[in-house]
Write a protein that binds this DNA or RNA. Structure first.
Lengths: 239, 239
DNA sequence: GAGTGGTCTAGACCACGCA
DNA sequence: GCGTGGTCTAGACCACTCT
């Protein structure tokens, strides 16, 4: 993570330049970059080196390349973000798309635990979003989402929020989520779970504690999801 | 998955050749392959194309490349397999290494559900391994592992089994696990969980249902792990 | 046909590990 | 100092998309 190689390959430097441009929003989501050739010329490297950079960013899902068309800023579209970071499914079955039940948002001072998890300063404020998501008509997931208010000014006015928040983060606030760290545990349904999800107290609940990281490696979102595990699973492939 | 490109790049053909050799055990785990140069010469391609193949297999963790030393068959060593496929940790903390509690193995006819999950023929036999794993001295995980007996002849005689079975699969049976598909759910502790893990009936248990896939895309292992979720989580990073 | 990304080559030089 | 993988270049040609 914090190596000092003492040697910095050319493609690494070029990579950083391109990442910086993407993070600064030089190109909009869905927009095409200049061609491999012209970028290589502009940055004074060979086409092969430029390709290595663009291929790496494609592997990280920051860019998309389409033969014959061009290189594009990857869009966290609803469907795409859905399948990438939303991993709830029926057992042995296909992925699901939730619909919105209820939601609420407010801005307030960050609590100690929130400052720790999101690496915020002492006087930071956060946006707290609480929502219930339905699957096939029934309430299934209760989420509490904490965002640094400074990074998402006015997001609480975007209600109703889109199904995939990461699309909004990218298009509305220039924040591109590239990774999430999740910790899953089993817990028993609380009174709140009962009220919001309609499950009996003491039923098993799958709890997902997630930190989302953006292109510039900032911790951008803390989300705790409580899933009615009766007929839902968290599905993932490890490679 | 089942595309018919109508066009087959050279590196793809070379890739298949190398995969076949690895699967056939032409080189042993930990052993060095011939150098990039000599492989390229032997297979009649340029060094650049050969590199593309070896880099791809390195990304899939089938090979390992070490500058100045050579290209090696990746070993599913205890530690490595441990960190790659064993994802149990303390909340917010470091990964853990379990130790063996009790274990038992027997060979029997496959049940219907096992034939389905492992895509076995009607008369197939399986090895059933049951074991309890301890973390920091206390029983924490109960696993039931189902293997196709034909693929692992005599594995039940290897008791006590190593902590990481995937190391044994590779070194003892030439089976290299390259991916797992997992489905996680929350359940309540059963009487069996109480007996084996010492937790109270009705406590929350994290259940991991895993199918492991080998280099040749065979479904090689079905494993159900029941984890005492009181002080343990399943930690994963999605990129 | 023009322009893009995708493949392939041949060769040079650099960084690393080891004897 | 040699052999290995890692980087970088320059250029050719192929496949795909759109006009």
């Amino acid at each position: 993570m914090s190596e000092t190689p003492g040697y910095r390959p050319l493609y690494r430097q070029v990579y950083d330049i391109v990442v910086r441009r993407v993070a600064q929003g030089v190109w909009r989501p869905g927009e095409a970059l200049p061609s491999e050739q012209s970028l290589a010329r502009e940055l004074g490297v060979s086409q092969g080196t430029m390709r290595k950079v663009l291929d790496a960013l494609t592997a990280e899902k920051v860019l998309e390349r389409r033969q014959g068309k061009g290189t594009f800023i990857a869009e966290n579209t609803q469907e795409r973000a859905q399948f990438r970071f939303f991993r709830i499914a029926h057992p042995g079955g296909k992925r699901l798309t939730p619909s919105l039940g209820t939601e609420a948002a407010r801005v307030r001072a960050a609590r100690s635990v929130e400052r720790d998890r999101l690496e915020l300063t002492r006087d930071a404020r956060v946006v707290e979003i609480t929502r219930v998501r339905h699957i096939e008509g029934a309430p299934a997931i209760r989420e509490v989402i904490i965002l640094p208010a400074a990074m998402f000014p006015g997001i609480e006015k975007h209600m109703p929020l889109p199904n995939s928040l990461y699309t909004l983060y990218q298009s509305g606030f220039g924040v591109t989520i590239v990774a999430t760290h999740e910790e899953l545990s089993a817990q028993l349904a609380s009174g709140e779970d009962h009220r919001h999800l309609g499950i009996t107290v003491g039923a098993p609940v799958l709890v997902i504690d997630r930190i989302a990281v953006d292109l510039t490696e900032r911790k951008v979102e803390w989300r705790v999801s409580r899933v009615n595990s009766e007929n839902l699973v968290y599905a993932i492939t490890i490679t």
